[in-house]
Write a protein that binds this DNA or RNA. Structure first.
Length: 927
RNA sequence: GCGGAUGUGGCGGAAUUGGUAGACGCGCUAGACUUAGGAUCUAGUACCGAAUAAGGUGUGGGGGUUCGAGUCCCUUCAUCCGUACCA
């Protein structure tokens, strides 16, 4: 008998599969049903993959193998989201070109993918940093640049149709998504515009446009970050502080799509939590924009947005964001130092500080009033940093009686409070925010219910021409510029007029130039400023910023359908065949970033007629994280002294993650720790019982926490099959679960047992010798087939594996097993443990390959029960079990149960009121 | 605050439509084989019941519906994730 030498078996099959790839014909060559599986695009990081990363990959591999066994045309591609910050940071430190390090990392990833037996379609591999790929990313950008959004048809259209309209009707009547301050012009004016003026007036309509915006500026990274790249006021990558800064940036007009992005979310088969997250992120609110006249001014007005217009009679003051133009106007008028100071202070504050310091209590009176549109009462205008400049109109009407923030503000500055909805909440208890009750103190609204008043006041405001019903979204247009080198260059150049112009399509790709320095230049311009001749042949300079990391990943699922096409981003026929991604697997951390952007780009490409789908991902699945214990030491703040776990209470300490290898049973190897980093060489320790005890925390595996488990070592020790099996056996795929190395012994043992069982037998002869398969073996085989198929289809891989174990435990006690039975067993095992399955199959079938053999099917007839062992309960408590044939009439069952000794004993003296008999389930007697 | 998810043995976790709670695996206990075992095999393993008995208790807590609840309803607590002055 050969020993189970998984290392050589796995190496052998890796070689065979590499050669075979593409050469195995599918079960049905003519237009088989397709199945498009997709893993989220990995960024090839320098630290390689850890075991947790493999969870999703192995899961998709199981599905791919399963559906291939079923004759599906399965696409399960893999590629690399190769542009990104870490490679560039590394380039800044070392001067090595990011492409080189990225290439090395990709090769490493590929090796790790191969090792664990992932059957990806490598001929479709994508690399976003490859000019052949980013040519099309740039092409899509041009589509965005050359399109506008028509709110009447709710569709993007080529910019030419907009020009057409401008020529005939100007822009007064166009219902387009555009900048708020877009100037109005007539057809005549348009025609009189110079080409530059026309270009300038088109810009605010483009789906990709330039605008000054307050951005998240990260000094340390030297770039702008998107909202979701900022966590707690720090950059997600590296954790550097982020400040606010006004810069001219490319932005994408995603807000135009907010309504569709929200509405189309509903039918998707996505985790509820992710849908909710996207809904909240898009943040739809219905309300009214109301214009208030400034007292003593003939033309100045202040617009507010409110979702509670019915409370208009409860307005006691106005609050503007300090950034509001009227605030600057008044500051200039009054030269009030407090006001100027407050505006200045807010401007320089980071978002984070603004949140921490602002408790709704700071603000300055502007010394101006607006007039209430119905009562004419003057309302004081204040500025306060609790009003955000970017949401709504950057101004609110203060209704302290029915809004908690306004209430707090009113309290702080002793402003009046006026209730307009009847409630039994006393005025000093805070705002009554519920949207129910009867209107009071509200003139024409008195006596109406809140919803009725809402409708009524909108009518009234609209009629009087001072308010409009509006739907507002919280979501902002994402900024698309990064002041970085390692990204897609914009196919944009600037003429003397300072305006952006698009490169012609046939000029693509615009290849990222070489630079000798990856940092900004002395004027703070992005790294591309170092590139020589970074201009068109006519000498017009190219855009210096590059696209963000999510550009390439917003459409890659389309490119996999037709990865080598040089004429189009995807051939229409290919796109029609593969259609949508049937099953998308990846982490939930992309809920509001990638998953939203990809949906947005899909809709744009759909509107412009390049593809026929409006949603990219039909079904989405988030694999859970693999957690791992990290080790913690406690450093006393501002000292190089560490205090042991149980003594740390009395000190102000900072927990420091250290490599788990330094810790044995919570005891720290102090020498190892001192040698770890120079700054700890002189560290001192406060011990307990002569030892330093570390703390531990179960958390997500990450390099920074030093708690990663490297799959290479696990594979070397137990084999890839055992690791695959273990990762899937741990628990439900979608749940996070802790990594426990001792657990892998179980799956490893199982594979060893399977190996011995198959190897020990001579399948050429035993097949004849025991042609008879016992009834219960047949039955459990069919049960297992049914169970495994169902479990795979519902991604319940842990239960599939346990049923395989149950099946095998049954087989292993049989003296003889028919070849057909073990054949089915190996086939069922194959998606989970492909190496051992291939090897054993080859042994049984002398060289035949398992990959495209049809998956076993079950026959329901074998699962029928002829008799059933009924649990018999009295008042719901199990007392005994009795066997009855399936055709035994209820009356006989009842009689026999009542005659049973044990039941008689329990029933002694009690009258049976009712006997519940549920066929093939249970019997319950009620007394 | 708001939104979402999860609570079952020592541990990871099973349990179609409500119908034998704890499958499967880890760990542990005992035994067998062995020079040895961190290899392998056999048996046991929710808890209380001193105990392999009778019996009782048990799916975060409390209540309810039902012949019957881990599963359905109400309520409450804890943990995790996301989000945060969004007017």
């Amino acid at each position: 008998m050969r020993p189970y030498n998984f290392t050589s078996i796995e190496e052998k099959w890796q070689k065979i599969w590499k050669k075979q790839k593409g050469s195995i014909p599918h079960a049905s060559p003519q237009q088989p049903p397709k199945y498009y599986l997709l893993n989220m695009f990995p960024y090839p990081s320098g630290s390689g993959l850890h075991v947790g990363h493999h969870t999703g990959y192995v899961a998709s591999d199981i599905l791919a193998r399963y559906y291939r066994h079923q004759g599906y045309q399965v696409m399960n591609p893999m590629g690399f989201d190769a542009f990104g910050l870490p490679a560039e940071q590394y380039a800044i430190q070392t001067g090595r070109h990011p492409a080189i390090t990225t290439g090395i990392n990709i090769a490493r990833y590929r090796e790790q993918f191969d090792q664990i037996g992932l059957d990806f379609d490598w001929d479709k591999q994508i690399d976003t940093s490859d000019p052949a790929y980013y040519k099309w990313t740039q092409w899509i950008f041009l589509q965005l640049f050359n399109a506008w959004y028509n709110h009447t048809t709710e569709k993007a259209e080529p910019i030419a149709t907009l020009i057409e309209r401008f020529t005939h009707q100007g822009n007064h009547t166009i219902n387009a998504a555009c900048d708020e301050d877009t100037p109005l012009f007539s057809a005549e004016e348009w025609k009189r515009f110079s080409p530059s003026e026309q270009q300038a007036n088109l810009l605010p309509y483009r789906l990709a446009y330039l605008k000054y915006s307050t951005v998240n500026w990260c000094e340390a990274l030297g770039t702008v970050l998107a909202n979701e790249e900022v966590k707690n006021g720090c950059s997600e990558v590296g954790g550097y502080p982020v400040t606010r800064k006004k810069m001219k940036q490319w932005s994408l007009r995603m807000t135009a799509y907010a309504g569709r992005l929200l509405a189309d979310l509903n039918p998707l088969d996505w985790p509820l939590s992710t849908k909710e997250m996207q809904k909240n992120w898009i943040g739809r609110s219905e309300g009214v924009e109301i214009t208030f006249k400034v007292q003593g001014s003939s033309d100045q007005t202040i617009k507010v947005f409110t979702t509670r217009p019915e409370t208009i009679f409860g307005v006691c003051f106005m609050v503007l964001a300090p950034e509001h133009p009227f605030a600057s106007f008044m500051a200039a008028q009054t030269a009030n130092p407090m006001l100027i100071d407050y505006i200045e202070k807010t401007k320089n504050q980071t978002d984070r500080n603004r949140l921490i310091e602002a408790t709704g209590c700071s603000g300055v009176f502007l010394d101006a009033y607006v007039m209430h549109p119905f009562t004419g009462v003057p309302l004081p205008i204040w500025i306060a940093d609790y009003v955000l400049p970017d949401y709504g109109t950057g101004a609110i009407m203060g209704v302290p009686a029915h809004d908690n923030r306004d209430y707090t503000f009113a309290q702080a500055f002793k402003l009046p409070v006026m209730a307009v909805i009847e409630s039994n909440k006393p005025p000093e208890a805070g705002a009554y925010e519920a949207q129910e009750g009867i209107m009071i103190n509200s003139s024409l609204l008195n006596g109406l219910s809140v919803p009725m008043a809402f409708e009524r006041i909108i009518q009234e405001l609209t009629q009087k021409g001072i308010g409009n019903y509006r739907v507002r979204y919280k979501v902002r247009d994402p900024i698309f510029s990064r002041q970085r080198y390692w990204g897609e260059p914009f196919p944009i150049y600037y003429k003397e007029d300072g305006l952006p112009y698009a490169l012609a399509e046939d000029q693509l790709p615009l290849v990222l130039p070489a630079v000798n320095n990856y940092k900004p230049n002395q004027f703070g311009e992005p790294p591309l400023s170092h590139a020589l001749d970074w201009a068109t042949p006519a000498g017009y300079p190219f855009e210096l910023t590059t696209m963000p990391g999510w550009a390439g990943s917003s459409w890659y699922f389309l490119r996999y359908m037709d990865p080598h096409n040089t004429h189009a981003l995807v051939d229409k026929k290919q796109a029609a065949y593969w259609n949508q991604v049937d099953f998308y697997i990846g982490g939930s951390e992309h809920a509001t970033g990638h998953l939203l952007y990809a949906r947005f780009w899909t809709k744009v490409l759909y509107d412009l007629g390049h593809i026929d789908i409006e949603e990219p991902f039909l079904k989405l699945f988030h694999q859970g994280m693999i957690l791992s214990f990290s080790a913690l030491a406690y450093r006393i703040k501002d000292k190089n002294e560490f205090v042991s776990f149980n003594l740390k209470e009395g000190y102000d300490v900072v927990a420091i993650h250290l490599p788990t290898t330094f810790v044995q049973k919570n005891v720290l190897d102090i020498e190892a720790f001192k040698n770890w980093r120079p700054e700890f060489a002189e560290a001192t320790f406060i011990l307990e019982n002569g030892q330093y005890l570390c703390g531990s925390k179960l958390e997500k595996m990450s390099k920074s926490k030093h708690n990663v488990v490297n799959p290479d070592t696990v594979i070397a020790q137990h084999g890839a099959d055992a690791l695959r099996l273990y990762l899937m056996f741990l628990g439900p795929l979608e749940e996070s679960k802790p990594w426990d190395l001792s657990g892998i012994e179980g799956t490893s043992r199982f594979l060893h047992k399977v190996w011995r069982f198959v190897e020990e037998r001579d399948w050429a002869t035993t097949a004849d010798a025991s042609a008879d398969t016992s009834e219960d073996v047949t039955k459990i085989m069919h049960q297992t087939i049914k169970k495994v198929r169902g479990a795979i289809e519902s991604c319940s891989f842990n239960t599939a594996i346990s049923s395989l174990m149950i099946f095998f435990n049954k087989l292993s006690v049989q003296e003889r097993v028919e070849k057909m039975v073990i054949e089915n067993f190996i086939l069922l095992l194959e998606p989970f443990a492909p190496y051992i399955a291939a090897e054993l199959w080859e042994r049984i079938y002398n060289g035949e390959h398992i990959k495209t053999v049809a998956f076993p099917t079950w026959d329901e007839a074998y699962l029928m029960e002829t008799s059933y062992l009924y649990p018999v309960a009295i008042n719901g408590k199990l007392r005994t079990k009795l066997m009855f044939d399936g055709d035994t009439p209820d009356t006989i069952i009842e009689k026999e149960v009542l005659a049973n000794e044990i039941i008689k004993k329990w029933l002694s003296g009690q009258k049976v009121k009712k006997v519940v008999i549920v066929r093939n389930k249970m019997i319950n007697m009620v007394t």
